[in-house]
Amino acid sequence: MIVANRKSLEEILNMLKPYKKVLLLGCNECVTVCAAGGEREVGVLASELKLSRAKDGQEIEIKEQTLERQCDHEYIDQVRPFVGDYEVILSIACGAGIQYVGEKYRTKIVLPGVNTTFLGVTLEQGVWSERCQGCGECVLHMTGGVCPIARCAKSLLNGPCGGSSNGKCEVDKDLDCGWQLIIDRLKELNQLDRYEEIIPVKDWTTSRDGGPRKRLREDLRL
């Protein structure tokens, strides 16, 4: 899933300073699972905003709405009947959702209520961890199913560096060394011989470096 993090109330209040009527939009997908922008978080943020404005004797009217997805236009269309009643949209979907809402309502200012951080997994209730950077050319079959791009702090394709110590990364004693994980897994899979192969220089055109990416499936198009 895409993992995001709620911005601080202070930052959100600052962005909202000029506005009294706010449409607060959550999303039912990834940000719900990572507890950053689902229906509950919409409720909590709305309540925080109301309390804090009330404390300062200022008005705010908030319409709470959580869409099935903010990355598909048919769901974004659902707020069309009343979007005009609000001065501003505060979205707590991922960065893609926030932008897409803006693309659909071009004269509305759409503010981000979360910081979108990574593609990851739920380690346990309340703990999420990064797994993939969407590099566009997956090498997991060569690295024991552990991503060197996302899980090594230096994205080394031929790690580990000299800073790997007791399974931890030089960057942080609490962070697993991605290359230790790769080697452990290669061993478990009986593929340690793979480690002897040099992984060649990567073609980054499939990644962000090649410019914004787009994917097309002709057979699916209408």
Binding site: L156, N158, G159, G162
Partner: peptide
């Protein structure tokens, strides 16, 4: 060399590159 991570340097907010790694650099 791969290089130490910038986290402990005087510009920890820098973006790092790591386009290639030390082994690939040798080969280059």
């Amino acid at each position: 060399l791969s290089g130490d991570h910038q986290k402990f340097g005087d510009h920890p907010k820098a973006k790092n590159v790591f386009d290639i790694d030390s082994i690939q650099l040798i080969n280059t």
